[in-house]
Nucleic acid binder design. Structure first.
Lengths: 153, 153
DNA sequence: CTATATAATTAAGACGTCTTAACTATTTAG
DNA sequence: CTAAATAGTTAAGACGTCTTAATTATATAG
């Protein structure tokens, strides 16, 4: 990979470390809960967006509305989401996370928390401050990019 | 989750942004290639470790050696990995990435490159330098933790 | 009002990935 | 040398997720 930009190169190395150390734990945890990738994606999406329709979610995940509907039915059965009729257009369903759904996401987050806490502990206050500033900068810049992203209300 | 540590809180927000903007593209791209999550995990693992055995890889991915063997067979057929006999112990197979395998990983990386480039372009040189430093700090600290978190059963 | 479009669901079936169990080959222990 | 352990493969079948097609309900256009 002939990329000269040290920012980009470092970012890629960072992804590698992060995926292996943190994300893997999260995914493993979710799998043990019986959640598929699509389900995880749906929960994340709902957490970000607040609410969505069946077809919207399917589009986001790259599957048909039928597949989306079937998957959401399972999440409803597990009480991770709530599926209600949109009063403005009664053909569409409004999907939102239940408290239990939020909780599951938080648990997943905690599954990687061990590593994150270790990482945090190995950093001085000064270093943490520096990194926090850098991450916040990226978050804010990222949010300014591509208006494809609607703010989570 | 009311976590007082601003580093941890910011980190979580960053994960949210990163997963949605960058990782999703990568996964989508891999899926289009016909690569399952396990396959992606295997390729990443091989890229990091250089080589591994069938059972090792299965353990890493959380599946049986049978499942690992079947999945690796597909990767061999796609010429993404090379499977050779270990001369030191002829029962074990040494799995390594082929050049094509490396290439596929790079392509996946490029799939998210668009976003990363955009992000990079929206940052000043000073900001990039600052973030690069912060990321390098985390990478180095992370690598010091549990050196190689390789829990052998 | 009628015809058409849209959102969601359901059913049937294709396909992929996983598991267990049986099997082969090789190594190690006694 | 023989017996047990280990690494990998293969086969059979369970299970999950996807797709297409048909169906219901609602909204909108002419």
């Amino acid at each position: 990979m002939s990329n000269a930009d040290p920012f980009v190169t470092t970012f890629h190395r960072w992804i590698d470390v992060f995926m292996n150390r943190s994300m893997r734990r999260f995914i493993h945890h979710a799998r043990e809960r019986g959640l598929s990738m699509s389900m995880i994606g749906a929960l994340f999406h709902l957490n970000r967006k607040g609410s969505a329709g069946v077809t919207d979610l399917g589009d986001h995940l790259g599957v048909t509305s039928a597949a989306s509907s079937q998957m959401l039915e399972k999440l409803v059965q597990q009480e991770l989401i709530l599926r209600t009729e949109d009063p403005a257009d009664r053909r569409v369903k409004q999907i939102v996370l239940t408290e239990k759904g939020c909780h599951v996401l938080e648990e997943g987050t905690r599954a990687r928390q061990g590593w994150l806490t270790e990482l945090s502990d190995s950093l001085s206050d000064e270093e943490k401050k520096q990194i926090t500033t850098a991450l916040n900068l990226m978050i804010s810049k990222a949010n300014q990019l591509g208006e494809t992203v609607q703010e989570k209300k």
